[in-house]
Design a protein around this nucleic acid. Structure first.
Lengths: 105, 105
DNA sequence: GATTTAGTTAATATTATGCTTAACAAACCA
DNA sequence: TGGTTTGTTAAGCATAATATTAACTAAATC
């Protein structure tokens, strides 16, 4: 999933899909890229689980999967919180020390 | 930043740093990789803003920057929320319709 | 039935990434 | 001072990622 998010084009595609489903050519429209290139990006997004697609007739409709995005968010949040929690515990530890600076005597 | 997060090794390095600062060799210790490889990964992390480092004497100490992780989290959250908001508005719209199924007459 | 639309497949070129070894530099220690 | 620790720089290489063009398939439309 992180790999899928690493590409600017794919992030823009997700950005589009966050505003609602789209067909492959709607998804491709903002880019100067060839359609096969878009389809390859789409494949990466789909294999990562970030996007789901379904073909009806000759049009493939793409939808974002918010659950998988949530998993990425959770990973990041856990690390960030881990760091901040460490700071908090350090602060508590320092608070619990005799205040040498305040009471130099 | 997404690019920096795309690599498994770099994510593990961040994981380590989320539990507190580390020197370059401490950071390298869990890996079977050569030290230069680690330094290259570290460079990517530093250039992305996810990690800050400072060299004192001959040891370079690495620290995670939680702010930049927060930026990634925000990007993801915005898209996820955008999607869910869209669903909510759709639900509200459907609720506001005359309930054709309930009242077929 | 012929044509257009929508997407797919395959082959390939280019570039980027991740890793290695070798050689080097500076700080610390005995 | 000489040797060890800690990290850095450079060069080379294998693999993976991103894009292209050309050819093709299937569905919809005229």
């Amino acid at each position: 999933m992180f790999q899928a998010l690493a590409d600017q084009t794919r992030r823009q595609m997700l950005d589009r899909l966050s505003r609602g489903p789209a067909s492959v050519s709607e998804l491709a429209e903002p880019f100067r890229m060839s359609l096969p290139a878009i389809v390859q990006h789409l494949k990466v997004l789909e294999e990562s689980g970030l996007v789901r697609t379904e073909k009806v007739g000759r049009v493939r409709t793409c939808t974002m999967d918010p659950v998988s995005l949530g998993m990425v968010e959770t990973w990041i949040n856990d690390r960030r919180i881990g760091w901040e929690g460490r700071l908090d515990r350090l602060g508590a530890f320092l608070d619990a020390l005799p205040a040498a600076d305040d009471q130099p005597r």
